[in-house]
């Protein structure tokens, strides 16, 4: 589904090199310390950064030179996922109509998405009136509604308390199972990765230090993974 082929990104004092594949419906956790290149990798997949070498292939289509707005994916950031002047309903509706001209059918779909994440009653609230977890749910509802085959998560739940984070990961897992969404999630917490993801990729200093199926890796964890456990 996603192929990051011989990808190379070079900066003044940092180089990211990776080569991996994520099958349709799989969920890949990208683990690494701060500065290891996790978010840079996500930015390259999303099209915010252009590869100096290599290719990004999504659903069999080479999108390496495709601008970010045209790539078939959704992304959630740690912050800034919602527009503060818009209601939860409008924030979700942006996933379907960026001009917010909604017909009855569209409005029904937005309400359905909000209902799916348990926020049907909060539709008229603005982000400032929602808790951190509720804001994450609104962003998830929009992602769900957009129906893009690939979802990128750049630590969107990192600021939530552990209980809420576990709840959000469980909800995300349900949504992925329901929709067959392919997922790449950046994290610095192996337990979060284990909760949601089927595969693991460990980055160290811009290089892939480890990759494989989560179950295989955790069955006999290599030395390099010990500090994360």
């Amino acid at each position: 589904m996603l192929r990051f082929e011989q990808g190379l990104l070079r900066f003044d004092d940092f180089t990211l090199e990776a080569d991996f594949e994520v099958a349709k419906g799989d969920r890949l956790a990208v683990l690494g310390a701060s500065g290891s290149g996790k978010s840079t990798l996500l930015s390259a997949i999303a099209g915010f950064l252009t590869l100096d070498r290599g290719r990004v292939i999504v659903d069999g289509v080479d999108v390496t030179r495709t601008p970010a707005p045209k790539r078939p994916l959704s992304i959630l950031f740690q912050e800034g996922n919602l527009f503060p002047h818009l209601t939860a309903f409008d924030n979700v509706a942006l996933g379907l109509r960026t001009d917010l001209r909604l017909d009855e059918g569209t409005r029904a779909r937005v309400n359905q998405a909000l209902d799916r994440v348990g926020l049907a009653e909060m539709a008229a609230r603005r982000p400032g009136d929602l808790s951190g977890g509720q804001r994450s749910r609104v962003a998830l509802a929009r992602m769900l509604l957009r129906g893009k085959p690939l979802a990128l998560l750049d630590e969107p739940f990192a600021a939530l308390d552990p209980g809420l984070r576990a709840e959000m990961l469980a909800l995300m897992g349900e949504l992925c199972a329901d929709t067959g969404l392919t997922l790449v999630m950046v994290s610095h917490d192996l337990r979060d990765a284990e909760r949601l993801c089927s595969h693991l990729l460990l980055l160290e200093g811009g290089q892939v230090a480890l990759q494989g199926a989560m179950a295989d890796v955790l069955r006999d964890p290599p030395e390099i993974l010990r500090p994360w456990m």
């Binding site: 999303a46 045209k70 992304i75 950031f77 912050e79 960026t98 957009r146």
Partner: peptide
């Protein structure tokens, strides 16, 4: 926030949006 511009890009915002 730069994330908001990135979000706008992935949502397909036009200049008008």
């Amino acid at each position: 926030p730069v994330e908001r511009f990135r979000l706008a890009a992935t949502l397909g915002f036009s200049s008008r949006d």
